[in-house]
Design a binder for these strands. Sequence first.
DNA 1: ATGACCTTACTTAACGTTTGTTAAGGTGGC
DNA 2: GCCACCTTAACAAACGTTAAGTAAGGTCAT
Lengths: 203, 203
Amino acid sequence: MPHSATPTKRPNAYSNILQKATPMFAAQGYSGVSMRDISKKVGTSAAALYHHFPNKQRLYLAVMEHVFADKVENIVNSLDRTSPPQNQLTQFVSHFVALMGNDLSLRTLLQRELLDGDEARLKLLTERLFVGPFEAIASFAKNLSSKSDPYMLAISMVGLIIFHFETAPIREYLSDSDRPENDFELISNHVTQLLSSALGANQ
Amino acid sequence: MPHSATPTKRPNAYSNILQKATPMFAAQGYSGVSMRDISKKVGTSAAALYHHFPNKQRLYLAVMEHVFADKVENIVNSLDRTSPPQNQLTQFVSHFVALMGNDLSLRTLLQRELLDGDEARLKLLTERLFVGPFEAIASFAKNLSSKSDPYMLAISMVGLIIFHFETAPIREYLSDSDRPENDFELISNHVTQLLSSALGANQ
DNA sequence: ATGACCTTACTTAACGTTTGTTAAGGTGGC
DNA sequence: GCCACCTTAACAAACGTTAAGTAAGGTCAT
């Protein structure tokens, strides 16, 4: 073989492991996935993983960092602070719906962390990643309504969106009506309308 | 010992095991808790558990049934279908907030099931337990607003409440303002107000 | 260009522990 | 004597992790 057939074939085992491990941890949780499980998916031995990560905990942490980095920060970048708060609301909702809908691992790991995360890790994650977007959301929430606490409102907005994805697997059993596909736009519109009629009315 | 000192001291090992295992599964998840962990908490040997349950899976399922039974059904009973929908909304929200706030295991196991539950178990749980309350909520939601899909609205209501509890552990790191205690009434009022101003306005 | 040397990336084997589960037997109330 | 209820001991498998060795490739003085 003279030179690599595929031009950019240097998968960098490290990030390849992260990539393979991410959906596994998302689907089965930390203690539901063994190092041997991961090694099988990657196609190496279990011991090889220890060449790249000191132990399982640190591998998991690296997965978290890999998943959350950038993506969460992009929320604050996607908001145009100069536009009227109503527009910012619409912007945020459609952006966040797309984020949660397209990245199953991100949403699942986020919810797992809220369930399983010890205090120290939750504090770290929150301060390093969540505070920024949260403040940005609360900021335009404050301009939307003087009636509600903007911080509670921000939590409500996020929860509203996430729960529609969380309940997606049981939706078809909940109501016998032939539901349409789990359409992002359906959720996006529903949430936007609910929030804007809640906040637009009694400002 | 002539007769039992404490009058009703017949703990019925079976339900005692369930009682001890419930918060453990809620906190650590299915694969995070071993049969020996449970046996230690109960105060017996691990093998003793197999006298009451055929295996770990069935023990877990019994825990689920034990936790969800009654409590979830009570939601539909707590609703007075004859009162105006606005009152039903207030009733439901305060009842559901109390339920989620007072029973940590219930909420946590519910969320774990939505994350981990295989299709078959989710279908079973939904049809046997969730459909009733869900229809009841959707029913008064339909009378509240003709604008939104009542089924999506019902999901929104539940998600709104649950997420405020889900994010409770990171709340203090999210905003530096000295938050009050995680007050049920605070959440209850916030959600009720948000929903009623959303739905009362453009009926 | 060669050999010595180092680093990187992996391998197979094995360690001690924990896992779910079973077998075999004992004890106390009916 | 029987049955509900528990015990201790053990099983094979899977767990996280480590040890030791090897093959490939780059570096560098000679």
